[in-house]
Amino acid sequence: MAREVAHRVFAAEFNQANLQVTEGGERAPSFVVTPLGARVNRLLVMGVLTSLEKTGKEGDMWKARISDPTGQFTLYAGQYQPEAAKALGELRPPALVAVVGKSRTYNPEPGVVLVSIRPERIATVSREERDHWTVDAGKHTLRRLECTAAALDMAEPTPDALVQMGYPRDMAEGVIQAIQHYGKPELAAYRAMVRDALEAVVTGRAPDRPPALPPPARGAVTTIRAPAPTAPGVAPAAPGEDPEAAEDAKLQAEERVAGLVRTLDDGKGAPWEGIVADAAKTGLSESDVEEAINRLLDKGIVYEPVLGRLKPT
């Protein structure tokens, strides 16, 4: 099973995204699709760590902002991302960093969509390495721009037609999904964004104005569940096989269950049945909950003071 590729996307393009696509079953990988058609499950970004704060109800979550020449990425790292959280704890802004992470979307209130990164690895980098990333992100963005322009030139654009022109399958599918969801993107504005970013590498100074992209799209995250595309002659991949997606789903279940343990704890601990009942409302089965609790117990995030009751540590 192929590992999800880490996309190189500028902050301004990533932050515009409000389309989430899941192809296949419950535990299939999900992607945030950007207006230029990057299907981002994982991404690699490099830039300046500009702010770092503790957040969350318990103050156990790091919130960080990373600036690239076009805008800012938002990162959240908690106890479920121990390596990244540890690395953040040792950093003082400003610092040049590289972040490998997974894309996330949030609906903090109706009508507002925020995309963020859940980091897997964080490392400090040199100015040259950061510049190398910026150029790389520029190249990938230009290629998506080119693919989008090619699609817009077609009377009836399809992924197959773009693949025939030599674009990778994943990019072709993403570009078509993006056009269907966002409509025709402002190609000139995105081209200007890339130009500003590349000029920043040449001059060594950040652009003096933010990219003139249309304001971030408002509205709920649109989630599409589409059947996974299959190639002829190849047995269709069964949904739920992707180990990364399965791990993602497990982490999400853990986060939800840990939250329930905290809210249901009346001092004597949260009752097991109460957790199962409330978790069922969010679509978790009893066995999902059981597995999540076992993993939380293993990680020392919750403990069982008496049989059948759980408390946060």
Partner: peptide, 15 residues
């Protein structure tokens, strides 16, 4: 990575 500046300039040229 040292040639990033030149590469950026080259890409700007094509843009």
């Amino acid at each position: 990575p040292q040639g990033s500046r030149q590469q950026a300039e080259q890409l700007l040229g094509t843009l």
